[in-house]
Computed example of a mutant assay.
Amino acid sequence: MKKRMGPYLVTAPALVFLALMALYPLIFLLKISFQDYSPINFENPYVGFDNYATLLADSSFWNSIKVTAIFVVSAVSIELVLGLALALILNQKIKAGKMFQTLIMLPIFMAPTVVGLMFRFMMNEQYGVINYFAEVLGFDRTAWLSDPTLALPALIITDIWQWTPFMIIILLAGLQGISDEPLEAAQIDGATKWQALRYVTIPMLSQVIIIAVLLRTIDAFRLYDSIFMMTQGGPVNVTSTLSWIVFDKGFRFLDFGYGAAIAVVMLIIVLILLTLFLKRFSLFEESGEK
């Protein structure tokens, strides 16, 4: 009995701590999403599904879904392509490859708020270094963060700069775990490098790619720091993502119940994406076993 219960007793304090830190906020979030909750309102009456009904009729909410989808799809797709290309180059054991790997990891170690502030200064229309070099090359200065057509691409560029190295780390580890025998067999059969990449390397790397895309997608949904430092959700809400609108409704307008309802919907969307990714992952595993 002691041997069976020993591991549970040892891990019980940590499990209780995790439950309190994870389950209680989730339950509280669900609770206040059905309330007219505000820190300055002592009654906080239950309103049922009124917050969710308001949410469905709120144009700013639907705009935030569109902005989030554009941001996540664009940023993660480009990061995947760049990450795979650079991982393939680094996997060739080029000279100074280790030093390049170390340097390319530096953006990950920087706080997102620092990165956002840095790009805010770099993209400044008057004294930003990007506009300085653009002017040197003969181009006009660009209002990156105040132009409605460029603000979201500016955020995407910032995210790509910081998180492409994350893709490189995972994909490079996956490439280094692939055996040389299938590639050698493909070369013997006369396959070109592109054919070997398309029909051998990428299929063998598919599970790693799914994991990398899954992790980055979930993280991209939570983007807030860069928006806060660079655009504040503007101009005219073109960078107002789901995470930003949760902050905007909940903490700026002190409508915690409505902000909680948006957060619950955001959680449901992430869970649906997670389920689809895991289903896809299981299909790859089944095909691999066959």
Rank of each mutant, 00 (worst) to 15 (best):
Q195W: 06
A96P: 07
L155F: 02
W163H: 08
L214N: 00
F71Q: 10
T113E: 13
P39G: 09
W62V: 03
A196N: 05
M122Y: 09
D189F: 03
Y224M: 12
E285G: 01
P203W: 08
M99G: 14
I108W: 09
L56F: 13
A260V: 03
L197A: 08
P165R: 05
L18I: 13
A261K: 03
A154F: 01
A143C: 05
T231N: 03
W62E: 01
D189Q: 06
L9H: 05
M229A: 15
M204E: 11
R120E: 11
S38D: 01
D159S: 04
S282H: 08
I157G: 13
L267M: 15
F61T: 08
K193M: 07
F28D: 15
A19E: 06
S77D: 07
K279Y: 15
V81G: 09
M110G: 05
F42N: 13
L155Q: 03
P39F: 11
D180P: 14
F139A: 12
T239R: 10
Y8F: 15
L171S: 02
M99P: 01
L197I: 11
Y52K: 03
I168S: 00
T192Q: 09
T192I: 10
F61C: 04
F42I: 13
V265Y: 03
F100N: 10
I178D: 01
V236P: 04
F253I: 06
L20K: 03
L150H: 01
R198K: 14
